[in-house]
Amino acid sequence: MSDLLTFHFDVDGDDFTSAGQASVQIKKNLRQLGIAPDTIRRVSIAMYEGEINMVIHAGGGEADVTVSETYIEIVLKDQGPGIANIEQAMQEGFSTAPDAIRSLGFGAGMGLPNMKRYTDYMNIESEVGVGTTITMRVNI
């Protein structure tokens, strides 16, 4: 079995203005690894959307990225309120973000749909009152 590269990030839930640091860092790391630009774009956008979601809805969380020879996997884990209706949350335009977040340009109901659009595999595990874990993979 070949070695897997892993990166871990704590996503700060208190600081909305710094949200995106983990995904911008991942973009740099993947570029250094010589990953194709389109793959980097897909991974970093999907991860940024996830980061923003954790900051808006869950008070932060953790992000783990694994790079293998055939795929890049992103696991986003939070102890937030959970998603009551995943099917509804996946619909473009559906959002529960507060007005203050919308005024910053988020909360368009495009986060989860973008994450699905940009990845080859996406799984959401969520329990109301416990938290949400999202696993995404982009094939290399």
Binding site: T17, K27, R41, S44, I45, L104
Partner: peptide, 15 residues
């Protein structure tokens, strides 16, 4: 017309 710090991450991620 957005001018908050998040536009930098979006500009960077979309290249």
């Amino acid at each position: 017309i957005m001018s908050n710090i998040n536009i930098l991450a979006v500009a960077s991620l979309t290249d």
